[in-house]
């Protein structure tokens, strides 16, 4: 029997406002934006290798605060500090984003059934974000711990890591996951908080940005592999001629 006598429900405690959910929502967006913007810079900085070893060398040293150091080589500890900071941001983001993660089998089934029944591109995009998010949950800490333990960044040292230490496998997985997740994450934050009403234009832009970042990332990864293959062990840090 589906028809029934309706009586107004007493408000259940579950539906009462909870300031933590507002905070979590803000935090998720804020940490997401922070990491997304960081990624945009990160990818551009590291792809300076495409302009030659010198270019990358100077970018790294500039970022490591070379102008403040006596020997002009900067402080690698800055990389460690930034890595620790980003790890913290990452943890916050992961914790707040986990609220969204389907935790029960029933929820997964509902999601699959919704994706199968209803054709909707933004939902599909979110699904990719969910999957990439899950991948990043494992991949990003690996990358960050690596940076914290051995913050040796430079044209030769990085290339050695990529080629000889086989980190390229990590990057090959990390790159597409992080690009898809970040680009559409930024898009979602913009529409979520009503920062734009030109949604369709923004989505086209996001698609373009995604392709651009992938090309950029793949090109620089190839470049590191190429450099790495030409290096002989043991590798000495690069210094500009």
């Amino acid at each position: 029997m589906t028809t029934k006598t309706y009586v107004p429900n007493p408000v259940s405690p579950r539906v009462l406002g909870h300031h933590w959910s507002a905070k979590a929502d803000r935090l998720q967006s804020a940490t997401g934006v922070l990491m997304g913007v960081f990624l945009l810079f990160h990818l551009h900085f590291e792809s300076s290798i495409l302009l030659g070893k010198d270019a990358f060398y100077h970018v790294v040293h500039f970022l490591e605060g070379s102008i403040f150091s006596d020997d002009g080589k900067g402080f690698p500890i800055i990389t460690q500090i930034i890595s620790v900071f980003m790890l913290a941001v990452f943890v916050l983001h992961a914790l707040t984003a986990l609220r969204r993660f389907p935790t029960q089998l029933g929820q997964w089934r509902a999601l699959q059934s919704s994706l199968n029944t209803i054709r909707h591109s933004d939902t599909r995009i979110w699904y990719f974000q969910l999957l990439t998010g899950a991948a990043l949950f494992f991949l990003v800490p690996v990358h960050l711990f690596e940076m914290i333990q051995a913050p040796n960044i430079g044209p030769n040292m990085s290339a050695e890591r990529v080629y000889h230490d086989n980190t390229w496998v990590l990057y090959a997985l990390l790159l597409p996951a992080v690009v898809v997740h970040a680009v559409f994450g930024l898009y979602r934050v913009a529409v979520k908080w009503g920062l734009t009403f030109q949604r369709h234009k923004l989505r086209r832009f996001a698609h373009g940005l995604m392709i651009y970042l992938m090309v950029l990332g793949i090109a620089s990864l190839m470049c590191y592999l190429l450099i790495g293959s030409e290096l002989t062990l043991p590798v000495t840090p690069y210094s500009p001629s």
Partner: peptide, 16 residues
């Protein structure tokens, strides 16, 4: 009424 996880903060902006 809606300032919670089941309300507006539960929306993931999938825009279906």
């Amino acid at each position: 009424v809606i300032g919670n996880q089941d309300g507006v903060f539960g929306c993931m902006t999938l825009l279906g």
